[in-house]
Simulated scan of single mutants.
Amino acid sequence: MKIQFKTTAKKAVLVSIMTSIALTGGAGSTFAQASASPQSYEVQHVEQDTKYSKHIMRVVRESLGVDSKSTQLDSKIETMPKLQVMDLYLASFGKKVKGNEIRRAVKEIFDIDLDVVSKNDYGSKLSIYPAPIMESLRASFNVAPDSTEQDARIMDLTKNAVMDRYIKERDYSLTGAESRKLINVIFGVNLDGISALEHIQLGILSKGQWILKSDTDLFILESSLDDVDVSIYATPYFESLTGSRELPETMVTELVGMGFTHYEETDLLYYKDPTGGSVPDLFKGQVMRVLTGTIVNEYK
């Protein structure tokens, strides 16, 4: 039994989108060990009338020009890309948006708690942030943009503090797109990619949180807290469709060729970066292309 995408055009669009997306960087709850069985995948259903919280719905309704309590545009809101919902929500603050307000938007719209990521220092370990961030934070410590005097102090800050100082130096004027780019660099959370993957039927467990999860996911991609390990396994839903938890042969062949180990006894694909560092973005993108390509091409 296979899953039917509505049109060939949709399939082409999905492939195009997915080939440009890297994994979400950093990640995972405690990683499923290579010799262990894949962890149980249970979807919790929450009683809720709308896709988003009442607070988000009220704000977005008003941003679209209707009364905050009107349900007139709710179906439209719930089919919007999450990026668009986030932009409408942030626009409600006017021209200035603080870091804590952006993080609240991420939590309420994407269900990703950046405060937890920051508090536990999850994600990729960076020796230094990109130049625009370093220059802004150096300025926040009253040193020249090219001075390295305060770099150790900057790199010792929590991710939230780095985000807040950068936004303050930019006079709280970041757009939604700029905010998401900043979040990707600091936290290793690619919100653009997550939004595009929302309906691809791939579960992602990252930074101790479910980044994407639905009861029709076919595969789970799980990564370690420091982004050094990656694990891939099938879901019970996949087993109900195919009658087996055995991973597709073509997918296994491609990923083993990229350095994954296939543990046949548990049908688990496992990769650990040989340098002991975080998995590079280029490699993440290659893995994602294999997974999304398999889903779109073999389970349409």
Rank of each mutant, 00 (worst) to 15 (best):
A144N: 11
P132S: 07
A91R: 15
K10H: 08
V162K: 05
D164E: 15
D146Y: 03
I3K: 07
S244N: 10
Y270V: 12
T158E: 13
S68H: 11
D115W: 00
G257Q: 12
N120G: 01
V162T: 12
M258P: 04
N100G: 03
K10M: 07
Y129G: 10
R165K: 14
Y122D: 15
H55S: 14
R180V: 03
K213L: 07
D151W: 04
S20M: 07
G259H: 05
R138C: 04
K213H: 08
K11N: 08
R153Y: 06
H45F: 10
D281R: 15
G26L: 03
R153F: 00
T148D: 14
L83A: 09
Y166I: 03
D74F: 00
V252D: 10
A131V: 11
A234C: 03
S68I: 08
I17N: 15
D111K: 12
L225H: 13
Y271Q: 14
K284T: 13
M57Q: 14
F283R: 15
V296Q: 08
S20D: 12
V59M: 09
I200F: 02
L191Y: 02
I204R: 07
V106C: 11
S70Y: 07
K272P: 01
L182A: 06
I154D: 09
P236L: 06
K95G: 03
G243K: 11
L202I: 12
I112L: 12
E169F: 00
E135I: 02
I3D: 04
D267N: 15
D87T: 13
V106F: 02
S195V: 02
I204S: 04
E135H: 09
V60E: 11
F219H: 05
A32I: 10
V46M: 08
K300L: 05
K125Q: 12
T30Y: 00
R170K: 15
D164P: 04
S214C: 07
K11W: 01
K6C: 06
V290T: 13
N160M: 08
S140L: 05
T175E: 13
D49C: 01
M163E: 10
